[in-house]
Every structure is written in structure tokens, then in C-alpha cells.
Design a protein around this nucleic acid. Sequence first.
DNA 1: GCCTGGCCCTGTACCGTTCT
DNA 2: AGAACGGTACAGGGCCAGGC
Length: 732
Amino acid sequence: MVQKNILTFPTIPEPALSRSWETAWEKVPAEWQEPVYRLDRAPNNRVFVRNSNYLYSNKTYDYRTGHTLADQELAWYIYTIWSEGTLKVDPAMLRWYVTSTQALIDRQPAEMRDTYSLANIEPYMLIKEAARAFYERNERYPSPNNLKNVESIAKNLYQHLTVRCSDTPWYEHDVWNMRLDSRIPRRENEPHAERVISLEQLTQTWLKEAARFWFSQALTYGYYTWTSVASRVTYLNYFSRFLATYEHTPATLGESLGSIRKLTTAFTDYLKNPVEGCHENALSETTIGSVTSTLQRFYEFAYENKDLITETTHTEAWLNLTADHTRLFPTYRRKKKGKAHPVTFFTSDELTLMLAHLDVLKTPMTQQVTVQTPGAEPATFTGLGDEQAARAWMIQALTGRRASEILMMDYQPLTMLDVDPEKIQEDSFIARMTYQQTKVDGVEPTILVDVAVVNIIKEQQAYVEEKYPGLEHPYLFPNPRANFTGSRPRSYRSYADTLKRLDATVKLTNKAGEPLRFSQTHRLRHTRATELLNNGVPVHVVQRYLGHRSPEMTMRYAETLAATAEAEFLRYKKVGSDGRDLGLSAKDLLEISQLDHRADRILPNGYCMLPPTQTCDKGNACLPCGAFATDASYIQEHRDQLTRLEALIEARKNQYKARRGEDMPETNVWLTGRLREKASLEAIITKLENEAAQNKAVSGAGTSGRVALTLLTNPAKNGTSPIVQPNLRTQR
DNA sequence: GCCTGGCCCTGTACCGTTCT
DNA sequence: AGAACGGTACAGGGCCAGGC
């Protein structure tokens, strides 16, 4: 768990790796050392955009400027983006870029040209020259978009060179880009790694440098995440733009609390009203709250660390900060008492409708797909060609995980359970799935999944394998663009955009005529939670399943249930697999299950009592196991199991006889196992029945003692949902 | 001592603009 | 012209203080 609100820090250690131009250049293989390419042939063809003017002439293209260092830098750049597979280049634009740089270098003194670095050419200089040259050639200026294309090459090349070929620490640059700079501290799975943080808009030097220090510390010591820093920078930008309307404001903002408050009040007004060129509309209450609280945290940090910040930013004014700066804004701000937001979920019918339309996402863009839903005319759509997004959505629907938890999953997220193949049904748990979670610390990120989920994952693995043959692909869901080597996970942004496109295509609505949006993926989480609770799964189990740290959050979903998690649990006496009472109090049992943070200890028909560290060698055969505990709330489950078991034994016996012409012997291994289970079940049921008879609270355990609830997606009960869900209370 | 509401951090949703 | 991005808005989840 990251410790928050620590306001003093040691200085940032210098990066150990040398990042000189020489070390960068050493990595370029001989065949890539000259910027001369056959555009139509591998391996070069992966790095160049298809351009018919270039591709259809079978010749070698020479991008040399004739100046040694510039040519090497260009070759290094092309090789780098090729090997990392993050960018492509249009050969025509590259030509334009090269002739422009050539002109710029040629204006340097002759003896400097061979050592002139492209890192000296800032993008704006290149653009000016490119536009000038274009005008000379064509007697008109280039179109804005055309110029933008050269600019993007200039910008990318400039950033690659300045960031990757110098020892300058990562935080010294004004643009922080995780894709470009591996030294930026990052968590293993960063939900918004694609977001670029730019300090360029902070025009006051004192502000920019102090912000640089604050954010670099925050990232280095992990007390803010990348997402948080990104939004905080945009919030500080407001302050910077506001200050720009004043002549000059010192870092202290004023001499006394009075003058400081005057300024911050003016700032609040600035945010509340539209400002042309900055924010066209007045900002919302919450945004203003975020902006002011960011500024407040910033000054608290600066006050606590004024010595360090003065030293780092070379701005003496920071030394004059006083305690007044830790209360820039009056603290009497009270929010309106808001009721908790209602839990929104999809009903079974809605989900069915949506799943039927998921095909539109799966179908290639060149094909049409017709969707037939009950009670509606068949509708035909053009496919959107994003099958992996469809699979990610399915997994979200089946497991209730967050979008980022699924998108950042490892290529191989499954650990198969040792399940007897004979016993597998379509809703059996057969594997443990590890998802990536960053939001809540201290939660074990694994859940049990059933055949349906496993099959989707296998399909997706095959898809990735086919898309990136022979390449390493660490993620199950690779980003579809700018990812030619398959090394980056799919960004939440591109996933959400795809789902939005699907929404716009199929335009689904619910019965009330409100739009049903695929892009609201969090609803799937609510849906799953509500489903589990409505199916009678105890709150603490659902809590663990969803990865909530405390039951409060889960309880919000549980409003339909009368009992709390504890009451639910304590109501029943636990019975061992031999049908005898366990020598443990219900309270102890609760603690055991609470201490153990793994949902898979809750079995479909009871609880596994093994201490968390102990492994089970009994495979799936819980019933005859001494560590198995159950209670009266599962009695119906046991009765159902018994019926199914008896039917199964009967069927097998008949099969055996049909095939071999003789009865199955009592010594048959399979049969003895089942008979043991049957004996256990019968003992348990008898015991629980007595239990229920004595205990008024559980009369008719599992039936009348419980609030009558509808099963949302159990196909056996209502036959509408195509979802095969891992029902926690069925035979596994 | 317990409960509740508010605050803070972090992630998701949405929309208009920019890029390709 | 469709995909990607940037900025804004807001929801989810943890935690703590203040009221009882």
C-alpha cells in the first residue's frame, strides 16, 4: 500500500544508465546505418506508410543529407521506430523533411555541418523552412494538413533524439511520454500509459519548475499515479493561464493572507465564468473543486519543502512561503448532501439484446451482418471489424471486471484447475484467471472462471498468435494501432471508442426508450454484482469476487437483501463432510473466511476450511473431504446435487451395460468415488434437516427463510439469457 | 466507541477537435 | 472520413474526522 500525504522526500537519484548518442548509435545494426531504403521490401516495409507514388517504383530511396551526424541520426530514428513498432513514416513526408533539414544545415558554417545534430532543429524551425521551400517550388503555401504531416515527423524525431540520446533526466524534459522514455517511473500495469504529460503550457518559469519538481517526486515515490499527475497538470494549466492575465505574480502570490486570498478568490471567479480562449463555458463545481484542491496540495508541498524547491528551481521566492499558503482557499466549502448514486445495471433482457448485437462488432468491415432478436424485425449492419473488443466485452460481462483489468491482462492469464473432465458441465469453474488491477491495493487479483470465459480467452490467444506470428506478445489484448510488434496492451481509450462506434451503429434502447450503451462497461460490473447477490451468494463472497476491500461498497449492490454479510453467515451452523458439527464457532468460521482473501475458498455448496497456505490434494472432490464445511443455507443445493448425482450414476451404469453387456461392478473406481459422495451428501442433508427443524430462523433453509429473489441470468430458470455464468451455487 | 458524511485520489465517460 | 486525442465531467473506493 502506498503511503499517502508524505510531504518530504530525498532527492531523485540520477539515472544509472548512460543515454549518450554513442550508446544509442551502437545499437543500430550495420544494415540500418544508412538512411537508404527499398520501401517495398521487408523489413523496411513495416516502417513506411503505403504511398503509391513510391511503392510502385522498384527502386532504392536515398534519404541522406550528405552530413554525417544528421544521416546517422535519421538512420537511428527509422531503425528505432521500426524495431519498436510504434510509428510509421510516409516516404513523401520524409523526403520533404530531409530536403528541409538539408537546407537548414547548409546554412551553417562548413566545418560544423558534419557534426550538426538534428536535435538542434526545433520543430517550429523545420516547419518554417518546409513551408518556405514548398512556396518556392509551387508558388503557393502548403495546405495546413500537409504541413502538419511534416510537423509530426519533425516533432517525433526531435523528441526521440532529445529524450533518448542524452543523459538529461526524464523529468528535465517538458514532455513526459512513457512510450518514449523508459526511465519514467511506472507501475507494472498503468491504466493510462498512453497519456502524454506536457509542462509546456505552464508559462511562468517558477510555476513550471516547481510543478516539475512536485510531479517528478510524486511519480518517483509513488504517491500519485500517472493518471492523477496527468489531470493535475491540466488543472495547474488553468492557474497558469489565469496568472498570465496579470502583469507579474511572484511565487508567494502576495504579501499577506489578505492579498493571497484576494488573488485566489479572483481565481475562483475566473474558473466560474467563461473565459474566451481558455474555457468557453463556466467549469463545473467538481472541476473547480479539483483545480483548487490541486493548487492547495501544490502549495502545501511547496511550503513543506521550501528549501528543496528553492534549491531545485533556483527561485528564492519559495523561501518566503508561510503557513498562510497552506490555506489558500477557505475550508468552509461544503458540498450538497448528495444521495448515493443509484446502482445502474443491465437487466437480463437488455443484456440478451446487447449480446446479440455484439456480432456487429465482430464482423469484418467488409461484411454485412443481420441480427435477429425476439420480437423485432431482423436488422442488417455493416461490421465494425473489432473482434477482440467484442471478446473483451464478453469477458467483462461474464466476470464483472473493470475494463482496464481485462485490457491489461497477460497473454496467459489462466491457471487450469485440476478438474475431473467427467464432471465438467458448461458452468463449471475450470480455471483461475489473473486479471490486472491497479485501483485497489491489497486485493488478490484472481477469480475462478468457467468454460465460457476460458473459451473466449483461448479464441483471443489464437487471434493474437495469428496477428503477431513469431513475435513476443505479452498481452492478451494488444493495441490495434501503432503496435506493429504487439508489445503494448490495448488502451482503454481505443476500446471505449470502438464501443462508442458500436453504440452509434446499432442504436439500442431499453423498454423506456433510453439508450443502451455498450460503452458503459462499468454497468456490466454492477450487473454481475447484482446477479450474484440476487442468486443468493453471500455479501462477503461477492465482496471478494469484485475485489472490494470493505463490504460497504458491495452492500450498495445488496440493497435487495435484508441481511448483512455477517448476519447471513452467522445464522447457520457449519456441518462437516461427515455430517457432524464442526468444533468451531460460527464466529471463528467467519474470521477464517474473512482472513482468507480468496474467493475460491467459497465452494458452490459450502466452504473449504483449509488454512490459506495449505494446498488441497483432493482435487475437486470436496464432499468427502474433512476440510469441507457447509451450512443449512445450502441445503437445497445439496438436495439438488443428490438428485443429479443419482441420475448421473444411473446413466453411467446404463451406458456401461450398453457398451459391455454387463453391470458396472461395485468396485469400479468412478463408482466408488460417486458412492462416497452420495453417502456424504445423505449424511449432510439429514444433519441439516434436523438443524433446520430446530432453528426457527432457518425454517425451510434456503427457501422460505430467504427473501424471494429472481434469478437474472440462470438459463435453467428463465431461459432467456445466453450467458453461461459461473453460478457460485451449482455443482462444479 | 461507533456511525456517517465528506474529502481525496484514481479510474471511467463523453464530446469536440485534431490527426492520419 | 474515420481513428485518435485532449479536456472536462463525474463515478468508485478508501479513509478519517466530527458528531452523537
